[in-house]
Simulated scan of single mutants.
Amino acid sequence: MKREKLENSLVKIKRIFMGMQGTDGLLFKLLTYGLLIGIGFVYLYPLLYMGSFSFKSLDDLLNPLVNWIPTEFYLGNYEKANEVLNFFSTLLETLYVTVLPALAQTAVAAVIGYGFARFEFKGKKVFFVLVLATFIIPPQVTLIPRYIFFNELNILGSLQAFLLPAAFGQGLNSAIFILIFFQFFRMVPKALEEAAQIDGAGHLRIFLTIALPMAVPAVIISFLFSFVWYWNETYLAAIYFGDQLTTLPLQLQKFVATFQKMFPAEMGLSGNQLNEGIKMAGTVLSILPLLIVYFITQRWFVEGVDRSGITGE
């Protein structure tokens, strides 16, 4: 009897820690949640650090007793950062040079992806490989020839330097979006399009009224990723736009130099000295629009990732 009770107790303990199938036990859950909390902390720590230090006054920054929670809700850092970044006008200019190319790139990628998925033509596989090769080739390889080409077209210093490649399927990472639409349109049943053809619908009408509405998750994913990539692009933007156009990330790169010009350091004026709180406030302002866009569109974003197969299926 004692041996049976001992065995039953061991079985119960094993079920508690290991579960019935090995994936529903306490040990597995602890490992899973511990891993998720660790990964989440790695991603959230920079945001928490920026948010905390951006509200610290100079006294809080110099006080070793003040670590994460400021003694007061200090907004002076954001006032200085707003002046240095010229936030609202720069934000409008950033949206101008990101939203339009992202829309053009999404629309063109949808058309190209649908063409590869639904039509058979000579050299289709070769063209598809060439499209994918544009993503494999580093952009630094084509930077100089493209710069010379844009200079001959006289589009340097204008939005056309971003918009023109996007309109011809050669925007930032366009091959990824073409591949997303290609895979998504292949999953759409051909019977729907064949029924529309029987009713007299042409290819353009089928694409606009049947295929594209069913590919809304792919459209959302492509536009959001394209928007973020154009927003964060500073290398090409600095080369193509020069001093004619600017973005928040570009202004953030010049933050220290701009601050020193606007607020020259003077003896006895500590408010004119650049500190970590002002830098963090400038960083928060530069990423704040992206965070707002994500929080507004996160439901559609998650649905699009789930349905478009961008996870690598």
Rank of each mutant, 00 (worst) to 15 (best):
Y49P: 03
L47T: 12
G40L: 15
F53V: 14
Y45W: 08
Y49C: 06
S52C: 08
N63H: 03
F41G: 08
V66F: 02
L47W: 10
S57N: 11
D60P: 08
Y45Q: 05
P64S: 01
P46D: 01
F41L: 14
L47M: 15
P46R: 00
F53Y: 12
G51T: 01
S52L: 06
L44Q: 09
P64A: 00
D60V: 13
D60A: 11
S57F: 09
S57P: 12
P46Q: 01
L44Y: 10
L44N: 07
L61D: 02
M50H: 07
L62Q: 08
Y43P: 15
L62C: 04
L65Y: 07
N63Y: 03
L62H: 01
Y43T: 10
G38N: 12
L65G: 07
G51I: 00
F53N: 12
Y49I: 05
L61S: 06
L61T: 04
N67Y: 08
F53M: 12
D59A: 14
F41C: 11
P64C: 00
F55G: 09
L61V: 07
S52R: 02
Y43W: 09
L44S: 11
G51V: 00
S52H: 02
L65T: 11
S52T: 04
S52N: 05
L61R: 06
G38K: 10
G51R: 00
V66K: 00
L58I: 15
G51M: 02
P46N: 00
L65N: 11
G51S: 01
D59Y: 06
V66Y: 00
Y45T: 13
S54I: 01
L58Q: 11
F55I: 13
I39G: 09
F53C: 05
S52D: 01
L48T: 05
L48Q: 03
P64F: 00
Y49Q: 07
S57K: 07
L48R: 02
N67Q: 14
N63C: 05
P64H: 00
G38Q: 10
L44W: 09
G38L: 15
L65K: 15
Y43L: 15
G51C: 01
N67E: 10
Y45P: 06
G40T: 09
F53D: 04
S57W: 01
N67A: 11
S52E: 04
V66H: 02
L44R: 09
L61Y: 03
N63P: 03
Y45R: 06
F41I: 12
S57V: 06
D59Q: 14
S54P: 07
S54Y: 00
V42Y: 09
L61E: 03
F53Q: 06
S54F: 02
P64T: 00
M50P: 03
V42W: 06
V66G: 07
G40E: 12
S52G: 03
F55W: 06
V42K: 06
N63V: 05
L47F: 15
F53L: 12
Y49S: 08
G40H: 10
S57E: 08
Y45K: 05
L44I: 15
L62M: 10
S52A: 08
I39L: 15
P64E: 01
L48E: 05
Y45A: 14
L61Q: 10
L48F: 13
M50I: 13
V66D: 03
I39W: 06
L58A: 13
K56T: 01
Y49H: 12
